[in-house]
């Protein structure tokens, strides 16, 4: 019996932590949006609610870098303030939905049997619902503003996410290391959360990012329709609908919030893809 520790180990190839350029740009966008969300009051030069009818609908100038809207509010400041709505809601939806979906998916995928049946039939039921319609109806009828919309979207997002997690679990389940853990007598709870979960985490993280993007677009869509946020709130979706008629007189008034929605959503998608690729290889 020869000890083989003497042979130098082959080092795991640590690929340099170099970010591809699109991902680096996406991170930059997200950093700016996050900074605006946290330090909005310090970054914005003006009060986003202050109405100055004397300068209503003015084009970009030194005082108003992106011009003003019909009520004379500073567009740039409103966009900066809007970042917090654009970040927090989608974050709560994506993280909350996936936390629930991860637990449900792990249980359904690993335990199988009647647990799987109950969870997956519920998922099928949720898939059967026209989700956009439900959101509009619930938020419109119940009212309650931004957080009602966030809550309804969160619930609607759980079902598809559960399906994703479950299929990732089903892929891990037949692997020998699970059999080995079972043979050792390791409890089911440990197998599910200590053995399987770390192996499916890259997929979960990637989908959290993609969910974030979807949630952002959904929330913006609702506020565009006048649901969710209160009128007058600095919110990107809301600004889109309020400033629709500025398209000719002060284009930045509508283009800036629109660009921010698109940039943020695309950036999160890029980051999610990159996280998935990096941690699954």
């Amino acid at each position: 019996m020869t000890a083989i520790g003497a042979v130098p180990a082959v080092k795991r190839r640590r690929r340099g932590f170099r970010l591809p350029i699109p991902v680096a740009l996406a991170c930059l966008v997200m950093a700016v949006v996050t900074a605006c969300a946290i330090f909005g009051s310090a970054l914005a030069l003006k009060d986003p609610y202050e109405q100055r009818l004397d300068v209503a609908v003015s084009s970009p100038s030194a005082e108003f870098p992106a011009g003003t809207d019909t009520l004379g509010r500073d567009i740039l400041s409103r966009v900066i303030y809007g970042a917090s709505n654009a970040l927090i809601g989608p974050l709560v939806i994506a993280a909350g939905a996936f936390a629930m979906a991860t637990v449900l998916g792990l249980l359904a995928g690993y335990l199988g049997g009647w647990v799987d049946t109950i969870i997956m039939r519920w998922v099928d039921f949720m898939f059967g619902l026209p989700s956009t319609l439900i959101t509009i109806v619930v938020v419109g009828v119940v009212g309650g503003g931004y957080w009602t919309a966030v809550f309804v979207l969160l619930v609607l997002f759980v079902a598809p996410d559960t399906r994703i997690v479950r299929s990732a679990v089903l892929e891990q389940r037949p692997r020998t290391y699970i059999d080995a853990a079972r043979t050792l007598g390791i409890s089911r709870t440990r197998i599910i959360f200590i053995h399987i979960l770390p192996n499916i985490l890259p997929i979960v993280l990637a989908y959290v990012a993609i969910d974030f993007a979807f949630a952002l677009v959904n929330l913006a869509g609702l506020s565009f329709l006048g649901l969710g946020v209160e009128p007058g709130t600095p919110d990107w979706g809301r600004m889109l609908s309020e400033n629709r008629n500025l398209i000719a007189s002060n284009p930045p008034g509508i283009l800036l919030p629109a660009a921010m929605i698109i940039l943020t959503a695309v950036s999160m998608n890029l980051i999610g893809d990159w996280v998935f690729e990096r941690f699954t290889k």
């Binding site: 020998t176 290391y177 059999d179 080995a180 050792l184 390791i186 053995h195 770390p198 192996n199």
Partner: peptide, 26 residues
């Protein structure tokens, strides 16, 4: 039991020490 495929028999996310500690706990 010792399994056939050495590449699948260990949890890729657990270090060797962690795998051994876990089964020692049993």
């Amino acid at each position: 039991m010792i399994f056939q495929d050495p590449y699948a028999t260990l949890n890729p996310k657990h270090s060797v020490g962690r795998a051994l500690e876990e089964s020692l706990r049993m």
